[in-house]
Write a protein that binds this DNA or RNA. Structure first.
Lengths: 343, 343
DNA sequence: ACGGATATCCAAAGCGCTTTGGGAGGAATC
DNA sequence: GATTCCTCCCAAAGCGCTTTGGATATCCGT
């Protein structure tokens, strides 16, 4: 059924060498010959045997990821979404995964073992923290890696894909300020993660630029579950001077926040404005909220796919991808934002 | 650094054949010789090259899974937990994953392609539905597979690992009945999934046995997020005759339910009793609830690990695992259950 | 017309393992 | 004592690819 290189070569009256070279884009093969080979591949459905390629090249054609497991950093819906993007792209290129669950304290050992095992060609790193020690470690490991997010306080000379969290929340906060809001709250992700830090920073910058301050009592950090969003919002609303607007680091958090707001009998977009960051989770579309949500949008799945593309491209030495990418989130205005209520 | 078979054989003054056989448990090698080989492996840290093994044996040493992606079946916290168990075990045996995200309507094609690709030795199947057509399809695919959960209405001749959902919720419901509860509600998972169906069945059986009925208005099916738990519970409490006890299909659902109960000013374990199924999520321990939860417990991560063990054992033809396993969930009584309130 | 590029192709040697097909030597059988 | 049978081991042939080190033919300038 499945043909191999030898048979294909025979069929074409060529040597395996030439066919192999034609397929792998080497220059020393006639253009016309290459076309013939490609045509034959199409007709026979030839697919190179990955095991043989692995053995011959020493490459693993697979990417490793250390999956954090620990109370409190339980993988949530965002993890699945990201993984879907990563996997979808990987499978297209016939790449495998080595998923290595690891408690944070064992991570270093895990990374080292993974890199030394020869089972992966590249590593993927996420859940970045400030001054993240894993970056220096990975640099020393002589295996390509790619970071989702960025550290803070580290030198910037490592490959990453991140979204511009600072700008996203700067833009969001500025919009609220322009609408007249003066007391703006923040329901953020875990405080040790850099995206949370940057979002707060962006928000703070917008406030400062307009002579406003960020009340510490109006900032909450937590896991990104709607339960936490709910509780945070409730706390804000019990404040002596409750906020007239709130920024949420995820639509999941917003879900809880919205519930708390409704419960308090307030109207979203009128009594209180809300902007959430939208990772484009299929389950939770901002336009489907009872009051459609204004969001800063950047698809997490797309990020996963892009990371897979870059990682694989790097391994195959195909394509030329930028080392560092900073995606700008779109600010999409829907109905959850409105002018600040008059006192 | 890393030794290979040839070097190891030289070191021992044996042939590669013998060393290979010693390692793979073939009988035609002297016990003493085998010990020598094993000792040398320990000393040198020899690890067989998987790529070479793959090529020589034709086995892939990896397991495939189709990851469902679609609105509404968004991977949730349970998925991550299960995956962690699966991956943890797989990595021990140096097995890879081929994660193939797929929309439900493309699943069949995806499975076929995966099986035909030769990239995986076995497939893993989850999120079982009643009369699930995927089972018959996988049977026809001549590739080993293992099901997490069970279908309903299919012949039972396929390998699975499931927990005894019926008994779990039967036991839970019976306990509540013995405590005097007559109106018991159910906050269940998606209605098309078999675990939901079985749990409801178990609950119904207990009720019927005691001359009670299940009020349809006291049954809710939904995704297992705390938001849904909250809403479901709220609906129950607004009922003309609210339940005095409730069964939840997950601690995540229970989280929302508890919030609704608290909000209504009711006391858990007194005004209303609650039993949840506990998948042993590290993030959400039933003993850490403000009122510790009575649960039916079965670790999802352990199930993942067990499935990996069986799948890998089958591929390597090592060990002898039962084809079908039905794990009994433990009923653990904590403070969320108490006698039915007197009217 | 001739040495040297240049373009195009090939034979064969691995990559590191498994597995087939023996083979030597001692024990058991007659 | 010859024959058969185990036991334990080995040499060598793949598995299907990549890659090295030519080989051949064509083309160039001079």
């Amino acid at each position: 059924m499945a043909v191999n290189l030898k048979q294909l070569a025979e069929l074409l009256g060529l040597s395996q060498t030439t066919v192999s070279r034609a397929l792998n884009g080497y220059p020393e093969v006639n253009a016309e010959t290459r076309q013939r080979v490609l045509q034959a591949v199409r007709e026979t459905g030839y697919r190179p045997n990955r095991a043989a390629q692995r053995l011959a090249t020493g490459r693993a054609f697979s990417i490793g990821m250390v999956m954090p497991i620990a109370p409190g950093i339980d993988s949530d819906v965002h993890f699945g979404e990201f993984l879907a993007g990563l996997a979808e792209e990987a499978v297209k290129h016939d790449f495998h995964f080595v998923l290595n669950p690891s408690a944070p304290e064992d991570e270093e050992v895990t990374f080292r073992r993974l890199a030394a095992s020869g089972n992966v060609d590249a590593l993927f790193l996420a859940y970045m923290r400030a001054n993240d020690p894993r970056i220096a470690m990975l640099k020393s490991l002589s295996i390509p890696f790619l970071v989702h997010g960025r550290s803070i306080g580290e030198s910037r000379d490592y490959p990453f894909l991140d979204i511009d969290n600072t700008s996203a929340f700067y833009d969001a906060a500025r919009l609220l300020i322009q609408l007249g809001h003066q007391r703006i709250a923040l329901i953020n992700g875990p405080e040790y993660l850099t995206f949370s830090i940057r979002r707060q920073k962006g928000m703070l910058r917008a406030l400062t630029e307009h002579g406003l301050t960020l009340d510490e009592a109006l900032v909450e950090h937590s896991l990104m579950t709607d339960e936490h969003g709910y509780r945070s919002m409730q706390r804000f609303l019990q404040h002596a001077q409750p906020p007239t607007a709130v920024l949420c680091s995820s639509t999941v958090l917003a879900l809880g926040a919205v519930r708390a707001i409704n419960q308090a009998g307030l109207k979203i977009g009128e009594d209180i404005s809300l902007i959430a960051h939208d990772d484009v989770l299929p389950m939770l579309k901002p336009e489907n909220f009872s009051v459609p949500l204004t969001t800063t949008r950047s698809s997490l799945r797309a990020a996963g796919a892009r990371i897979a593309t870059r990682l694989i491209g790097g391994i195959l030495k195909r394509g030329d991808y930028p080392e560092q990418e900073l995606w700008r989130a779109e600010l999409i205005v829907r109905a959850s934002t409105g002018p600040a209520p008059q006192k």
